[in-house]
Design a protein around this nucleic acid. Structure first.
Length: 362
DNA sequence: TTGATTTGACCACT
DNA sequence: AGTGGTCAAATCAA
């Protein structure tokens, strides 16, 4: 936790405050001649805010509180699916295993690696033969390929070329999407420790090689989050909401300026997700979206947030790594990432409310 | 010749 | 027992 409040706490407070503000608005509307739709809209937003706050409370709990448990119980009933379970890649259980492995190292000679598994998942759209701006800054060597049950396409396994020379244990898996063969799902595992982790530039592979060596731009060394990147979109940070709709439903649609809501390191713009489905955003706070740019529908979130969404607490969230992520993700295009500044300054805080009371937060 | 890829087999995990 | 992840020998390519 940095400063006095963690990201979760700040977000939780903002959600509660927002709920309060919306309630005030609703009260005013009740006295005025507002339409039933307006009231219903406000009511929906209030419920959404409190629902998100409850989710945060759950996610902010002890490590043992698995996201999957949260997702299948109580307040999440209206949010089907999970950013974790909705995807076939290992995540929270991997994380648990990784933590366990860290504390209980087993036979290192065994095939199943004992390195912590911080799973990242990046989807790269390589349509039109574009070489995905998928520079993760490290050279990869393929060490295996496997047909996966229920998947049309085999999964390829890569490890860092410098695995032996620099003991870089980073690995990644690449699998072509069943739904959209032009989309590759890249799951990163482990942390890059090689010196070239963020510097090397690989020559663009042939389109066919793209599957085997998805190239460039998505260096996500250890943070676990689910992200979908379309290389061809105006911004490479565009989210194909079709595939993520279930996941996104679980992702509280917060957007904020990272200086206010960034992860523990703060100060950097971490990543941006661009949603195409406006209806999805409709239920979100207007505080998070600029009404002046309805077609944009940008919202930003922090990988740390995604960490939590993926059932992982911000265990490893160094500033340098996050900076790398952002620089990698934003270097392909000069697409401006709207600065959706959302801060507590925008809302009134009842100074009497003991947010900082010990025990208020779990 | 050297490094990368392929692929069958082994092993861990559930 | 089924599945996924990794190993390592064989093969390929520069």
């Amino acid at each position: 936790m940095e400063n006095s409040w963690s990201w979760e706490q700040k977000t939780l407070v903002s959600e509660l405050i927002q709920g309060m503000e919306l309630t005030k608005q609703l009260r005013q509307n009740l006295g005025a001649k507002s339409s039933a739709e307006t009231r219903e809209f406000l009511l929906q937003k209030i419920l959404s805010s409190y629902e998100k706050a409850l989710l945060i409370l759950k996610w902010s709990g002890p490590m043992g509180q698995r996201l999957t448990q949260s997702l299948t119980q109580g307040v999440t009933s209206s949010l089907p699916g999970s950013p974790i379970s909705a995807d076939e890649s290992p995540r929270s259980d991997d994380f648990d295993r990784g933590v366990k492995d860290q504390h209980e190292p087993k036979d290192l000679s065994k095939k199943r690696k004992v390195l912590p598994r911080w799973t990242d998942l990046v989807r790269v759209n390589s349509e039109n033969g574009l070489e995905g701006p998928h520079d993760d800054g490290c050279s990869w060597r393929k060490y295996g390929q496997k047909d996966i049950l229920g998947a049309k396409y085999p999964r390829s396994y890569y490890r860092c070329t410098f695995r032996n020379t620099q003991s870089c244990l980073a690995t990644k898996q690449v699998q072509r999407s069943d739904d959209d063969p032009s989309v590759f799902e890249v799951t990163y595992r482990g942390k890059h420790t090689c010196s070239q982790g963020s510097n090397s530039v690989q020559p663009p592979p042939s389109p066919e090689k793209q599957e085997q060596k998805p190239n460039n731009q998505n260096y996500v060394p250890q943070l676990q989050y689910v992200e979908q990147v379309s290389v061809n979109s105006p911004t490479n940070l565009k989210v194909n909401n079709e595939d993520l709709k279930h996941k996104e439903m679980m992702a509280p649609p917060f957007s904020f300026h990272s200086s206010t809501y960034g992860c523990a390191t703060g100060g950097d713009n971490f990543s941006a997700l661009v949603l195409e489905n406006e209806t999805f955003l409709g239920s979100f706070s207007q505080s998070f979206l600029s009404p002046a740019t309805p077609e944009s529908n940008y919202y930003m979130t922090s990988p740390c947030r995604m960490n939590n969404l993926a059932g992982i607490h911000d265990v490893q969230c160094s500033k340098s790594e996050l900076t790398e992520i952002i620089s990698a993700n934003t270097s392909a295009t000069n697409s401006p990432i709207p600065d959706l500044d959302f801060s507590l300054d925008h809302v009134q805080i009842d100074t009497n409310f003991p947010f900082d009371t010990p025990g208020f937060f779990p």
